[in-house]
Design a protein around this nucleic acid. Structure first.
Length: 118
DNA sequence: AAGGTGACAGTTT
DNA sequence: TAAACTGCCACCT
């Protein structure tokens, strides 16, 4: 009885959420890197799409640590307050200017390398 | 059930 | 050089 409705999105989204939760504080990654790590390099758009439900996920997903390939805070508009994403990143020691992360390459966190895929 | 969508990325003009 | 177009694939209505 009582089927669990939230067991629906178990495939891609959950993997994305888990991976995003593994991003260390002060580090950021890109949608493409996540998609590639999950095996679907072409599904980078879907990664961002997954973040739409990130706010209802539990535990919460640090979506602010995910930006696009250019290091631009493209998803800031999806936060409660437009500057929330930037502020969160700044509180983690990152420098953001004109909605773009400075020294992005230096703060980039590559899941494939960090998790040391065998 | 089928079509439309998108918090991207890569290619072309 | 920068801007614009297309591909993409899993989710959503």
């Amino acid at each position: 009885m009582a089927k669990l409705k939230f067991a629906k999105q178990n495939d891609f989204f959950q993997q994305v959420y888990q991976l995003v939760r593994l991003i260390p504080k002060g580090k950021v990654t890109s949608y493409g890197a996540i998609a590639k790590y999950l095996g679907s390099a072409k599904s980078s758009r879907m990664v961002g799409y997954a973040m739409n439900n990130s706010h209802v996920q539990v535990p919460p997903v640090p979506a602010h640590r995910v930006v696009n390939r250019n290091g631009v805070l493209t998803g800031k508009h999806f936060f409660a307050h437009q500057h929330e994403m930037q502020q969160l990143l700044e509180s983690e020691g990152l420098i953001i200017e004109n909605d773009q992360i400075q020294n992005f390459s230096d703060s980039f966190w590559n899941p494939s390398e960090a998790l040391q895929l065998y």
